[in-house]
Amino acid sequence: MGKIAIEDLAKIQEAARYKIALRQGAGRVRINVHMGTCGIAAGARGILTAVMKEIEARNLHDVIITNSGCAGLCSQEPMMTIEVLGEPAPVKYVLLTPEKITKIIDMHVLKGQVVKECALALGSERTR
């Protein structure tokens, strides 16, 4: 125990060459996991880990992962917001599970198709 091993340091150094920014830079996609007390209690930490693992597994270099506090919809946690450059509005995904994360990354992040059944709401109100 104690000092971090040289080989691990080397791996981190190697990893730093990849331009997968977590919180800054001009990424094409920004994924924000809500990590307030409500989110954490509902499983946000597992969601954040699932997002990191999916992004790493797909070797995506243009996705920024970040987190924020309570968004005021505690009953819908765990939640995340995805912003894609060029899309008209961010999409809030609710009641997430790691399985849903895989689908959302595949459909929304890679193919640009919003996963409607996992989204909070789409568009504005219409009367008919």
Partner: peptide, 21 residues
């Protein structure tokens, strides 16, 4: 801080680096 001291001004903000950690 120990990692940063060893590696200089390296940033830990990549999913790969966090995966190693």
């Amino acid at each position: 801080r120990e990692i940063r001291d060893e590696l200089g001004s390296i940033s830990l903000n990549s999913v790969k680096a966090i995966s190693v950690i």
